[in-house]
Deep mutational scan, measured.
Amino acid sequence: QLNAMAHQIQEMFPQVPYHLVLQDLQLTRSVEITTDNILEGRIQVP
């Protein structure tokens, strides 16, 4: 299920590496919260 959620987020934010999306999802278990984390700059994109 997390993989499906990660792919959904990757479609919206292809610039964010998959492993970072998955790592955040493991903590949040939420597409909405992880999306917010990306938008708020809480996930550092190399």
Rank of each mutant, 00 (worst) to 15 (best):
T35E: 04
M12E: 06
V31F: 10
P14R: 05
T34C: 04
A4P: 04
Q10L: 14
L39K: 13
E40F: 14
G41V: 03
R29K: 11
L2D: 03
E32T: 10
F13N: 03
V45Q: 10
V45E: 08
V31P: 07
Q44M: 12
Y18I: 12
P46A: 11
A6W: 07
Q44L: 12
L39A: 07
R42H: 06
L22W: 10
V21M: 04
T35I: 15
P46D: 11
S30V: 03
Q1M: 13
G41M: 06
A4N: 09
E11Y: 12
E40G: 11
M12H: 07
F13T: 01
L27R: 11
P46C: 11
E40C: 13
L25A: 00
F13Y: 08
M12N: 08
R29C: 12
Y18F: 14
Q8T: 10
D36I: 15
P14F: 04
G41S: 05
E40V: 09
E32D: 09
N3K: 14
Q26A: 10
P46L: 11
L22E: 05
I38K: 01
I33D: 08
T28S: 07
P46G: 11
I33F: 07
L39V: 09
L20N: 03
L20V: 08
Q26P: 02
H19A: 09
F13D: 01
Q8P: 01
G41Q: 06
T28H: 05
I33P: 01
Y18Q: 07
L2W: 14
I33S: 08
A6R: 03
E32I: 09
L25N: 00
R42D: 02
H7F: 13
Q15T: 11
I33E: 10
P14E: 03
L27W: 11
R29V: 06
T34L: 00
L20S: 05
T35L: 12
A4G: 08
H19M: 09
F13M: 03
L27N: 10
H7I: 12
L25R: 00
L25M: 03
Q1S: 14
A4L: 12
S30G: 01
I38R: 00
Q44P: 12
Q1E: 14
P46Q: 10
L25Q: 01
V16R: 01
I38F: 04
Q15L: 10
M5L: 12
E11N: 11
R29Y: 12
L22Q: 04
P17S: 06
Q44D: 09
L25S: 00
R29H: 13
V45A: 10
V45G: 09
T35D: 01
Q1H: 12
R42I: 06
I38W: 04
D24Q: 04
R42K: 08
P17T: 04
Q10M: 14
G41C: 08
G41D: 04
D24M: 08
S30K: 04
T34Q: 01
P17K: 04
L22D: 02
N3Q: 14
Q8D: 07
L22C: 08
F13Q: 00
L2Y: 09
G41K: 06
H19I: 10
D36S: 15
L25K: 01
Q44H: 11
G41L: 06
V21E: 02
Q26L: 14
M12I: 09
P17R: 04
V21N: 00
D24Y: 05
I38A: 02
I38D: 01
E40T: 14
Q26N: 08
D36F: 15
N37A: 03
D24L: 09
R42G: 03
L20C: 09
Q23K: 11
V16K: 01
T28V: 01
L39T: 07
Q23H: 11
L20I: 09
L22A: 04
P17Q: 05
M12S: 08
E11S: 13
Q1A: 12
V16C: 11
H7E: 10
V45H: 09
I33V: 12
Q15D: 13
I43A: 02
R29T: 07
P17V: 04
R29N: 12
A4W: 14
